[in-house]
């Protein structure tokens, strides 16, 4: 067994164990942290395939941003885990069916391209990142752009749904604050001193 194979099996074992942990963990925060571990090990496996760009982007986007917000939400809500588990055995057949279906689909998709054609025969100077960029902006430019537009629409929709202006909300307008002049705030009045006579009397 070569070193790469050894690393692959080690990462795969950690990935599977943490993925099972995500589903079975009693504590939701633990589940999210195990999800992070699963993402990082998946990125490690992609690195073995010389797909550096995908691996680093997985960590950057999913570990660095998406899961942080996920954790953010999970930490603030109080989940009753017993209630959630109540229907576990009822849903098990359905979820097993869906799981098997997904596994079969993935095997079929991979089989059609040949399982063994993995990155081992690349010429020197081959850059997975460059290749990916070339494909995205030439052969797959329309699907890529359409996916981008769909994501943009979804993003704007999400913002539009949550953006409600309450009349009672107080907010500041920094431009207004910065442009304030002295004359707007202070009024200087010219008037004679009133206490002159009194001051003399005190002495």
């Amino acid at each position: 067994m070569s070193f790469v194979t050894l690393v692959f099996y080690a990462f795969s074992a950690i990935l599977l164990a943490s993925a099972v942990g995500v589903v079975t963990a009693r504590n939701t925060v633990h589940a999210v942290l195990l999800l992070v571990l699963a993402f990082v090990t998946a990125a490690g496996i992609w690195l073995l395939l010389e797909a550096e760009f995908l691996a680093i982007t997985l960590v950057l986007v999913y570990v660095g941003a998406v899961t942080v917000l996920f954790l953010f939400v999970v930490m603030t809500i109080d989940i009753n885990i017993e209630k959630l588990r109540a229907g576990f055995w009822n849903y098990l057949p359905l979820s097993l069916g869906v799981g098997v279906l997904m596994a079969v689909e993935m095997v079929l998709a991979l089989k059609s391209r040949g399982f063994d054609a993995i990155a081992s025969s690349h010429p020197a100077g081959y850059s997975n990142t460059k290749e990916l960029g070339r494909l995205l902006y030439t052969d797959y430019v329309y699907p890529f752009e359409i996916a981008a537009v769909i994501l943009l629409v979804a993003m704007i929709a999400a913002i539009a749904i949550t953006m409600r202006k309450r009349k009672t909300t107080k907010y500041q307008n920094p431009a207004q604050q910065v442009s304030v002049r002295r004359e707007d705030r202070v009024r200087l009045i010219s008037m004679p001193s009133e206490r002159r006579g009194a001051a003399e009397g005190d002495e």
């Binding site: 942290l33 982007t57 960590v59 660095g64």
Partner: peptide, 21 residues
């Protein structure tokens, strides 16, 4: 490595977990 800048971005983005946890 080729993508060292991206690597640094990815790694430093994981630092936030320490604070949250």
């Amino acid at each position: 490595i080729d993508a060292s800048l991206l690597f640094i971005m990815a790694v430093t983005s994981m630092g936030v977990y320490g604070v949250i946890v």
